[in-house]
């Protein structure tokens, strides 16, 4: 008897007669498709986790672009690229203005 079970449970079992337990037997088909469906559902998030990150190839010549079919989506979306450009431009202008003042 397990030492984890409470005291009363660890009394000595002298004999057990558990016979004639009603049993029902069926084909495995009653769980097969449902288990498959559950398996598919559990696999999906895993696959998403292991998805390769999109390749970053910003210096690809235009004529080669067509051959690089592995590029599925740009690393930086169009809209944010525009915003980034403006931000960099503004920072550059700011630094040159400050350096002019220092001179």
């Amino acid at each position: 008897m397990s030492e984890h079970l409470p005291e009363a449970a660890s009394d000595k079992v002298k004999s057990v007669h558990l016979v004639n337990i009603p049993t029902k037997v069926t084909g495995v088909d009653i769980i097969e498709s449902d288990a498959k469906a559950l398996g598919r559902l559990h696999q999906k998030p895993k696959r998403q986790q292991h998805q390769p990150k999109p390749e970053i190839k910003l210096h690809v010549k235009t004529d080669k672009l067509k051959r690089h079919t592995s590029i599925k989506r740009p690393a930086v979306p169009e809209a944010s690229r525009g915003i980034l450009g403006i931000a960099f431009y503004a920072v550059g202008r700011f630094i040159s203005a400050i350096s002019n003042v220092i001179k």
């Binding site: 337990i21 029902k24 037997v25 069926t26 084909g27 495995v28 009653i30």
Partner: peptide, 9 residues
């Protein structure tokens, strides 16, 4: 043999 066996008590 790929069968499901239920027992009830």
């Amino acid at each position: 043999d790929c069968r499901i066996r239920f027992k009830k008590i």
